[in-house]
Write a protein that binds this DNA or RNA. Structure first.
Lengths: 227, 227
DNA sequence: CGTTGGGTTGAGCGCGATCAAGCGTGGTGG
DNA sequence: CCACCACGCTTGATCGCGCTCAACCCAACG
């Protein structure tokens, strides 16, 4: 967990294209950037733990982060997987000042760190910043509600088909593309055991989906839409 | 669906104690109140429909509202149930300008209506208002994520036990209280078919839970916590 | 080579959806 | 006043989905 105190050009550029910052005026963006630091996290490291003091929230510059929770008997349940551009733990700016979930790097990850106290101050001075935060919160809320709906009304193959359709290049017809992360992580994101994901893939074979390691081949995108 | 254009004293009071308004200064609260109107909705009426133009968001003054979505085959899936003090469709302030879900009055409902365009203007002028909105968005986000976690890691009886524990008076030991709404609505909130809720109740009988219509009797609250 | 880690496959089973029937209460009308 | 019905809920029977445990496969790597 090597903290890099300064923002290099590449990181700065990534950050400015994040949903949180990309609509800000130059002045507001500059004020945000002033209080950001960048950390790089190694694969499998814990970013924050549920119940611990919430000092920062984060946006992801590169890599994927798994948000999960522990049940009393020690089992882990995934709640979401977030990638480049996404914000995590923004909701910790409000509430009781602790994180409510765990976050773990699913691979090597680069994070932009926003100090919560500072962001509170900044957002109560700059409506522009406040609106950006609201917008991100709102989009995360929509995502979470979609997730509940998806879980409740679709079977495993349907959820997988949904995911594939949302994560493949928008060229219709026949496609070949690469999964953005490990299958076991995808299983968690979809609320499935890894074995169930595997079976979902093989049940989609009849709908024209072929799997070669992380590379997915879809014969007919339209056909997949009707699962 | 009888729109009452003015806020009477009682409604005004309810509204000022809502999470969205209760921390606002008098001046900011006054500005919010100026652009609020109140509508009363009859049981089973649709408040808004998914895909339709989002002109307002709402907070609930009394009654319960069911948020749900339709799958392609016409089946309804519940996503959440919201009650007095809760805000619904705040996330429609951002995004594509349409509602993403359906909202239906589960009973006679009184709503405070906030015009979205006006609230956008207000929140970009008053950081205080923006912070209040963020805080509510954030709490709704937390709720939704909790819901995903709850769905994924707990069985029906466990989710029901959770709900009962969160909705009973905080006096320990032995309690008797009334469900806030119909069981069929509760089933939807917990992501269950009504039959499954019924069975969950009877499986909790062995944990000291007795049901008399809408009245629930819990022998030992602590015992219920260990389900 | 053996090991390790990610993925697949198989067998068994429990949870919860579904369909169908039955129950109890409150409301309505003859 | 009572027969009837409507509605919310319960109970039973069945079934399919997805979890669990276990074995196996395979590629990467030392």
């Amino acid at each position: 967990m090597n903290k890099t105190l300064t923002l290099n050009v590449r990181e700065r550029d990534l950050l400015l294209n994040t949903p949180l910052l990309k609509r800000l005026s130059g002045a507001a963006a500059e004020r945000m950037l002033d209080s950001v630091s960048v950390v790089s996290i190694e694969s499998r490291d814990i970013i924050f733990g549920q119940g611990s003091q919430a000092k920062n929230f984060y946006t992801i510059l590169s890599g994927f982060v798994r948000i999960y929770t522990l049940s009393r008997d020690g089992r882990e349940t995934d709640i979401g997987v977030y990638g480049p551009g996404d914000a995590i733990a923004i909701d910790a700016m409000f509430g009781d000042g602790t994180y409510h979930f765990n976050a773990q790097a699913a691979e090597a990850v680069l994070l932009a760190t926003f100090n919560i106290a500072e962001m509170k101050r900044l957002s109560s001075e700059s409506p522009e910043v406040a609106v950006a935060l609201m917008s991100v919160l709102s989009s995360n809320l929509g995502q979470a509600m979609d997730c509940v709906a998806d879980d409740r009304m679709h079977t495993a193959p349907q959820r997988l088909a949904n995911f594939l359709l949302q994560n493949c290049p928008p060229t219709g017809g026949s496609i070949r593309f690469r999964l953005p992360f490990q299958k076991s992580l995808l299983a968690g994101k979809l609320g499935l055991a890894p074995e169930a994901l595997s079976r979902a893939f093989s049940s989609l074979r009849s709908a024209g989906v072929a799997v070669h390691g992380r590379v997915i081949e879809i014969n007919d995108v339209e056909a997949l839409r009707n699962v």
